[in-house]
């Protein structure tokens, strides 16, 4: 199969950036051995001393990265599973996201926290979480959630180059699911920019991560039935690309927001609110959200997991209802 997977895109990008900038180093659990998903494979041998195994202590992985970034280094921390990041929430919420603000710009933190998120891998309650809603509530932090390998590459590069703390979310189900030729794909994505991935006149779907791929698959099916969808890949969740989001909503006038996280307080509420607030006159139907049900976390067994997760069929069903409104 030609092209690079998501995980390969991440790995080659880390390798390339570390070769270009001595200040970049990696810290996290099992990273010296390559990490549980192999994102850092071979890097410890190629860059001795710059790939650092940490104890199993997420708060300090992030807090130590804060200190190192303050000193002028460019740490790329890996939290093994997004589900484990909450022990470090304080360091992102109370510290990293406020560093620039509370010093009135005197200090800043060029640091990245990478972490695999999302379900569909039989990871149960603590290896499947969507964490974006907690962290997109932290102005001062940037949150990125790409879908395609070329975007992983360009956005990870941009994240490491960014002078602000960036939470870089990698959907683990897509790690080896999608391929793209990194050499020929333009990969022009920039932090803070969404992308209209597909154009259609009947309705607009907003998604990110695995759900973007499921939405594109649903759009393909719907197209055969004469329902044409615009599909927006949000890419950066914080700060949001309001312009692209609103532009995509106006023409079709019907909006479906899809995410894998549970519904209440989920990130889709923000997109729904923005569209309702700024594009109300263009709407021909109420804004629709499709999300996981409000249960505490993604359950383990296949039957339970697939019931919990939105997918292309559920998206297509919701889209048909919306198109018929």
């Amino acid at each position: 199969m030609p092209g690079a997977t998501v995980i390969e895109a991440v790995r080659v990008t880390l390798e390339e950036v570390m070769g270009q900038d001595d200040r970049v180093f990696i810290i996290g659990e099992d990273v010296e051995a390559g990490g549980v998903f192999r994102a850092t494979e071979g890097l410890a041998a190629k860059y001795p001393g710059r790939v650092i195994d940490s104890p199993l202590a997420e708060s300090s992985i992030i807090g130590i990265s804060v200190g190192a970034a303050h000193y002028g280094m460019k740490p790329v921390a890996e939290i093994q599973f997004a589900d484990f990041i909450h022990a470090g929430f304080d360091q992102l919420c109370s510290e990293a996201s406020r560093w620039c603000y509370r010093t009135r710009g005197e200090a800043h933190l060029p640091m990245v926290v990478r972490t695999p998120w999302g379900g569909g891998v039989h990871g149960g309650q603590h290896h499947s979480q969507s964490i974006e809603a907690y962290y997109t509530h932290l102005p001062g932090l940037k949150v990125i959630a790409p879908s395609f390998p070329a975007d992983y590459r360009s956005l990870l590069k941009a994240a490491i180059a960014d002078p602000n703390p960036v939470l870089f979310l990698e959907h683990k189900r897509t790690y080896r699911m999608v391929r793209q030729d990194l050499a020929t794909e333009p990969g022009e994505s920039r932090i803070g920019r969404a992308r209209v991935t597909r154009r259609g006149d009947d309705l607009t779907i907003y998604a990110y991560g695995l759900m973007l791929h499921e939405s594109l698959a649903a759009a393909e099916t719907l197209s055969r039935d004469g329902i044409e969808c615009t599909v927006v890949d949000l890419l950066t969740l914080l700060p949001l690309d309001l312009e692209t989001i609103l532009e995509a909503a106006r023409a079709p006038g019907k909006v479906l927001v899809v995410h894998e996280d549970t519904l209440t307080g989920g990130f889709g509420g923000e997109i729904a609110a923005l569209v309702a607030e700024h594009a109300f006159e263009y709407l021909d139907a109420p804004v629709r959200r499709l999300a996981a049900p409000d249960v505490p976390a993604m359950p383990y067994h296949h039957n339970l997991e697939s019931f919990f997760m939105p997918d292309r069929e559920k998206i297509a069903r919701a889209a048909r209802e919306l198109a018929a409104y």
Binding site: G63, A68, M73, Q91
Partner: peptide, 18 residues
């Protein structure tokens, strides 16, 4: 938030060592 500065100190020391 008390003690959050401790990992920062350690991170600075790690960076300086690197």
């Amino acid at each position: 938030v008390v003690t959050t500065q401790f990992p920062h100190a350690v991170g600075i020391a790690l960076a300086a060592k690197l």
